[in-house]
Structures are given as structure tokens and as C-alpha cells.
């Protein structure tokens, strides 16, 4: 079964990406986690994301285009990346979520991937 793992990182963790003191251990944690996922045959795909300030949002409202910079959501945790995992069940997905480097300070959300509608 496939699960999407959404990784909400704390502001303090995200700041480590560019902190010369902390960057090595930050990226080391992530590369080892990704290695463990891949070599256990669990990883289907995924990406880390640039900070939310780099995002751009589009809405079509009443035929009008609205493009905005951001979002600039004011929240302690930010979506820092996502993985798609192939595992037996939710228990197995939770077991991997507990090992995620963002888990001690952030939050990990798991959602089953929606299968394609039948007939397609």
C-alpha cells in the first residue's frame, strides 16, 4: 500500500539548513534516512521543498486570475518535504514515520494514496 508522508518541520529545524554549525548533521540525518528508506525497498519517491516564502499561489475566481507570492502562513511548522512510501500497512508507515529526523521537533502526517478511479 502506498502512503504519502508529509513532513512538517519546526522553524528551528528548517533554520539548520543554512546554519554552518548545524547543516552537516541536519543533511546527514536526512541523507541517512533516505538511504535507509531506499535500501529497505520502501521509497517510491519524494522531495524536500524550498522554504514557503519561495511558493507562489494561483486561484481562478469568477474567471479572474489571482496570483500571489507565498503563502506566508504564520505557523510553527512548515511543510518541508514529502515522500511516497510503499509499505504493507499503516503500522509499517508509522514505524518509518517515527524514524523521520523531523519527528522529534515537528510532525509527520501519513495519508493513504488515492487509487486511480476505476475505468481509467
Amino acid at each position: 500500500m502506498q502512503y504519502a508522508m508529509f513532513i512538517y518541520e519546526s522553524a528551528a529545524d528548517l533554520a539548520k539548513r543554512n546554519d554552518p554549525q548545524a547543516a552537516d548533521s541536519y543533511w546527514g540525518s536526512w541523507s541517512s534516512y533516505i538511504k535507509a528508506l531506499s535500501e529497505a525497498g520502501v521509497m517510491v519517491g519524494g522531495n524536500g521543498l524550498q522554504p514557503y516564502q519561495t511558493g507562489t499561489t494561483l486561484r481562478l475566481q469568477n474567471g479572474k486570475r489571482h496570483v500571489q507570492d507565498g503563502p506566508y502562513a504564520d505557523s510553527k511548522e512548515q511543510l518541508g518535504g514529502y515522500f511516497i512510501l510503499e509499505v504493507a500497512d499503516l503500522d509499517a508507515a508509522l514505524d518509518w514515520a517515527a524514524r523521520c529526523p523531523a519527528a522529534p521537533n515537528g510532525a509527520i502526517e501519513l495519508r493513504p494514496v488515492l487509487p486511480p478511479p476505476s475505468g481509467l
Binding site: 548533521s25 546527514g28 540525518s29 541517512s32 534516512y33 535507509a36 524514524r99
Partner: peptide, 22 residues
């Protein structure tokens, strides 16, 4: 060591293993 670090849940254990690499 990298694989062990990636499988760790305890951040202190993960840090200990990553130090072995560096």
C-alpha cells in the same frame, strides 16, 4: 553507520552514529 542512523528513532543515537562517519 549511515544506514543505522537512518533507521534510528532516538535522535541522540542518530547523532552518535553520524559522528562516527564524520
Amino acid at each position: 553507520f549511515r544506514r543505522a542512523a537512518g533507521l534510528s528513532e532516538d535522535p541522540a543515537v542518530r547523532a552518535f552514529l553520524l559522528e562516527k562517519i564524520f
